[in-house]
């Protein structure tokens, strides 16, 4: 029996980094020494110092403050996008898996089409056509990632659908909606949490990539992708401008993915324990 204390040290470090970033994002207005968009014409392109922990960029904006506010943008958006994707993917996956037949065939056809399209190009196309705005970004991310989600959910539903308790409650007179909400959903919840966590990491990356290409968050918004884009012409002489947001993206994605793995381990072990008692 493995509990949370016995998890590998790597997972604990990941959790620590994530907590650090979350608190940085939440308390950004308190911690940040400068306004992230405050331009200081006399202090451009400074290296790390006591006054500017991570230096300043070409317009004299404090990089440390921008990193903190950038965490807010990234995390907020990633959670929103992951939720949208979940909502869409899980609903369609559950319907597809539970009802089967022609509904399943149609939804799976859509899933195949969307999975066949290259995600990044699709995202660029959608964000490009609709113009850069939060709504179009959300749509771009959701449309390109719901399919994989719904496929996994469908598989889980197919597994649970055959259990006796589903047939039993159906013979009691339960409606399909009731079964989906009270029987299927709670029983696939563990998998959903894991999927959700991993998804957040992927969204952070996609959004940074889009921002870097100028299709995501728009300057002067303090976003990590935007910061990397701003820094690319200076990075030979001022690598701190590029490394700071880059390493932040790396740390956030890596820690979220590791936590997803840790959750999977915990949940799967717990399921085994349940089975043992049965």
């Amino acid at each position: 029996m493995v509990n949370i204390k016995q998890l590998s040290i790597i997972y604990k470090i990941a959790a620590f980094i994530l907590l650090l970033m979350l608190s940085g994002a939440i308390f950004a207005p308190v911690i940040a020494p400068y306004d992230p968009n405050q331009v200081l014409p006399d202090e451009t392109l400074q290296s790390c110092s006591g006054a500017h922990l991570l230096g300043t960029d070409a317009l004299g904006r404090d990089v440390f403050s921008r990193i903190l506010y950038g965490a807010r943008v990234s995390i907020r958006f990633a959670v929103a996008a992951a939720l949208c994707t979940m909502l869409f993917g899980v609903t369609l996956g559950m319907i597809s898996g539970y009802f089967g037949g022609i509904i399943d065939t149609i939804i799976q056809l859509l899933v195949n089409i969307f999975q066949g399209l290259p995600g990044m190009s699709m995202m660029i196309a959608i964000a490009g056509v609709m113009g850069p705005s939060t709504a179009s970004l959300l749509l771009a991310v959701t449309l390109t990632s719901w399919a994989g989600f719904s496929r996994i959910v469908r598989g889980e539903v197919l597994k649970i659908r055959e259990e006796n308790y589903i047939e039993g409650v159906r013979s009691l007179g339960a409606s399909a909606f009731y079964i989906l909400v009270h029987y299927i959903l709670p029983n696939i919840f563990n998998s959903l949490i894991i999927l959700f966590t991993v998804r957040i990491g992927t969204v952070v990356l996609s959004i940074a990539a889009l921002s870097f290409l100028g299709l995501g968050m728009q300057p002067p918004e303090a976003d990590w992708g935007v910061m990397i884009n701003d820094a690319k012409i200076y990075f030979r002489s001022y690598p701190n401008l590029l490394l700071a947001p880059g390493l932040c993206i790396l740390a956030l994605c890596a820690s979220i993915n590791l936590i997803g793995d840790a959750l999977r381990d915990l949940f799967s072990i717990q399921q085994d324990i349940n089975k043992q008692y049965l």
Partner: peptide
């Protein structure tokens, strides 16, 4: 099988 006749989450 009584073990799979009730929703394990309820």
């Amino acid at each position: 099988n009584p073990e799979s006749s009730l929703n394990p989450r309820m």
